[in-house]
Simulated scan of single mutants.
Amino acid sequence: MTMAAAGPRVFITGASSGIGAALAARYAQEGATLGLFARREAALRELAGSLPHSDLHRIYPGDVCDHAALSAAARDFIATAGGIDIVIANAGISHGTLTEVPEDLPVFEAIIATNVTATVATFGPFIEAMREQGHGTLVGIASVAGVRGLPGGGGYSASKAAVVTYCEALRLEMRRHGIRVVTIAPGYIDTPMTRQNKYHMPFLMTPERFAGRAVRAIAGGVRYRVIPWQMGVVAKLLRWLPDALYDLAFARAPRKARKARKHAP
């Protein structure tokens, strides 16, 4: 049975908390029909039940690294919503990693699988439907951490840099099909993920404020946007900073907490 959509039909991964939940709430306020994918079923049910037009929304408990589950969710949502307008690959994890520590290698692999490969697996099942419609928007959630490599965070920085570059390539590929590709790079957003950071986070923003700005950017047809704008300025400065100066300034920068503790320096 097809659901009647009052607004855009939006599929979001990592929807149970943080940025994903805030984006869901924002789109629901605009009358969207939502497909919400995340690992925690209870949290998804609670979120969906709290949103306007809760009967329009569908939840899909699953891990984004389970590509078959993503494909099944995409097929179901397209069928029940009668199409797809926006897909947001938001699911992500963040841990500190050190190359010389063997225990960190599987952590590095998990970061790449969740933040990069799962973004591809999220978008892929929706592209055929978007081509048939002649429109649609794919949104990759990157990070300012992907602008330059950060000490102790090589896995996370590499994954988010990969998301930026991948989305740029995909944008060129999808152009002739009428499919837009948008990259949103959050700065520091107050979520369970960033609360693990034991250092000062400049321009810290609530998920709700971030979601409002992100939704406006997506609707406005941007290709790449850093939110908040202050971190966009910082990102541009970091991009232009000569390597020698960058190395001098950031070699002793605060580091993300590592998941594996054995042999920690």
Rank of each mutant, 00 (worst) to 15 (best):
K198Q: 14
A211S: 08
R131D: 06
M174K: 02
V147S: 08
F210A: 05
I141S: 14
R148Q: 15
G178P: 13
T117K: 13
A185T: 04
F108P: 03
I218P: 08
K236N: 06
L204W: 04
R195T: 12
H200K: 12
G187T: 02
V182F: 09
I227E: 12
L248D: 12
H135C: 07
T119D: 10
I218T: 04
T114Q: 07
G146P: 08
G136I: 02
H200E: 14
E173P: 04
R175Q: 15
R213V: 00
M205A: 06
E128P: 01
P106C: 11
D247H: 05
L237N: 05
M174T: 00
H135Y: 11
R216F: 00
P242A: 12
G155F: 12
A211N: 07
F108C: 04
T137S: 02
I141P: 15
A249S: 11
A142N: 06
V215C: 09
L150D: 07
A217V: 03
H135I: 00
T114P: 02
L248K: 07
V226G: 00
T165G: 07
A161S: 14
R176M: 05
I127L: 14
V164T: 11
A118M: 02
G136E: 00
V144G: 06
P125Y: 08
Y246H: 09
V233A: 13
A142C: 13
W229N: 01
I179Q: 13
H135Q: 14
M201L: 07
T183A: 14
C167A: 06
R180V: 05
A162G: 13
